[in-house]
Design a protein around this nucleic acid. Structure first.
Lengths: 199, 199, 199, 199
DNA sequence: GATGAATGAGTCTTCATTCAT
DNA sequence: AATGAATGAAGACTCATTCAT
């Protein structure tokens, strides 16, 4: 088994790189619209305006493409939090900003959102990598805040998973399914839980 | 659109009822193991030990079966909370018990868990019914508690979605993927958030 | 790996048995005409007058079908020699009759001939089974004749392979490619070699 | 039909000649390993370390390449017998030496062996040319021996085909499939048949 | 009600070949 | 000469669904 299995095949020319990009974009749109199983390679290449065969010049398989896409998107999501965390303020404040940013993102890129979610079933390792990574980054932030004395109680990995679950469902409900509340509002209200619980 | 569309076809005899039940169980196992798309009707009927054709005596289609299953399971999950809520104690206490019960359930019936989750993509209306229903019940509990003065701050549907997201991800992480923490522990630690937030 | 892998799937009804037989016959004709790689499942099912999908009701794959065919034909070829050997006469006489019979068969069933030959590349185990089996049966006959004192010199597996090679090439040349000499003539002349060598 | 069809395209420069040679060698290895149909042009050019497109600078098509290879190899096999025949001794003796040489060759170049054999199905004319040529050369040798009085009985083309069949199968069995007997031994034992038949 | 044979649209994937650079 | 991107026809195989028995 080649380590490069499932990785996009490296184009050797600039033209190749462009074609690969086109296919990738078409695939993101297609998967976002129809989900993995309803999407077809023919349809993706048609969207991309390239021949069917060209797909296989750049990707091993439909699964490999999906995985590549999830990895790519997972990275995009990860990037969201970076600038916010860099500013390093109050932990609850930080999570509030992260959530706000995340909700905006879910609105603007609901297809990415759906793709990562569907990965739970289609590309489980990629899905796990995404969420385990996310949870451990949140956990790390909480621990750091605790070390700085900004959090008094215990912090636990469980808190991190609770937060990520909250974020994901809020993003789904208020960013993808219905947009009847603004990201700021959703984030602010949800954040009360982190701030002071239900009282 | 017939209201009865997608509903299991009513068996007319006792024998028929048993066959239908057998198929339903086999389907739950199959979908839980392989997910919707990898599952096949032949395989389900083989598990059930009935002929392929018998499937269509009791179900409209593969989708209809799945939907029926999700509805059935959704109802099972709903039942979980009923006795707990009936005891009507402190709201945070209530959510703690509900979460604990839910985590136990996720452990014992991870296949049900996966099926409902996959419904987001395969049977979106059933999925929505399940989660919108869940959220509104939580929301109702919170409002009731607020009315009884047990909660001082504002309560919002957003809180309900945050809680449901928490629960789902904790169930997935600690009930399905890895069982390295007990349901009680997970619920207790997660509940701190509802109790007093991160401080 | 199931032991039944590659074996034809057992039909459960008489109708099924007929369909399977039809497909098998169509396949023999197709493979004989075009060879394995140029033959296609669509074409085979068209010849058979059944739907494409029906093929997969009865066979695992194109390879499995081919293998099944080779096994079946190998058996037919084996049957050729049985009655002749049963008569048990002079060994050279016996090989003469076997060769004659074989040459007649090659003429009448050149497609079978080609299929077994192509198996060397497409279904090597089946091919080996066929020829190793054939060689060992010839060898056994030679040994028996030797034991009966009908052969004075040493007998060796090598002789058996030499004889089989002779037979195959004569069948190909005078039974399949060109039929410019009668089976009896070919067998008689070739048999001189076994009789007394080149002198 | 152009007489030059299927012939390798003539390289115009020394560099070109080298590239063509490289491709030819890579193809021999590939075809020997995987057989004609499993081999692919991409894979051949990768083995050769040249670009895919370069293939078509030197060969008309995959079939043409194969045919060229068979012709080339057929010629190599033909060369085997030349020095032996030149020495012109006793005919049985000659065939013994030819067979020995041939068996050695089959051992050392089993890929060539397989390629010529597969040509029966892939490049039938080349295959026919090879074996008809071989048979007629053997036949010619026998006739010459007969003329010189070294063979007393009749000689026939049929004898030639019998001999070639023997050789091919012995080469396959003892040179390619299993090498449990030395070429000398195999040739010596097989030669008894030519010498004095089975007695 | 139960059975399982039959159907064929739909998909993925391969690969020889062409051609612009 | 050499390169490798692009093409698309062709083929194996799956599987939900129908229907005669």
């Amino acid at each position: 088994m080649d380590a490069a299995a499932n990785l996009p095949r490296e184009p050797r020319t600039e033209r190749g790189r462009r074609t690969q990009r086109t296919i990738l974009d078409a695939a993101a749109a297609e998967f976002g619209d129809k989900g993995f199983h309803e999407s077809s390679i023919v349809s993706i290449t048609q969207r991309a305006g390239v021949a069917l065969g060209s797909f296989y010049t750049y990707f091993e398989s439909k699964e490999a493409l999906f995985k590549a896409l999830v990895l790519d998107m997972s990275e995009q999501v990860r990037q969201l939090a970076l600038p916010i965390v860099a500013e390093a303020r109050d932990p609850v404040e930080t999570e509030l900003s992260v959530l706000t940013r995340f909700l905006e993102f879910a609105r603007e890129h609901s297809e990415i959102y759906r793709i990562i979610d569907e990965a739970e079933f289609v590309a489980p390792e990629a899905w796990r990598a995404h969420y385990y990574g996310g949870a451990s980054r949140i956990f790390a932030r909480l621990k750091a805040a605790k070390d700085r004395g900004e959090i008094t109680g215990e912090v636990d990995e469980i808190h991190a998973w609770a937060i990520i679950g909250m974020n994901v469902f809020l993003g789904l409900r208020y960013g993808v399914l219905e947009r009847d509340r603004s990201p700021e509002e959703v984030a602010a209200i949800a954040n009360q839980l982190l701030q002071r619980g239900l009282r």
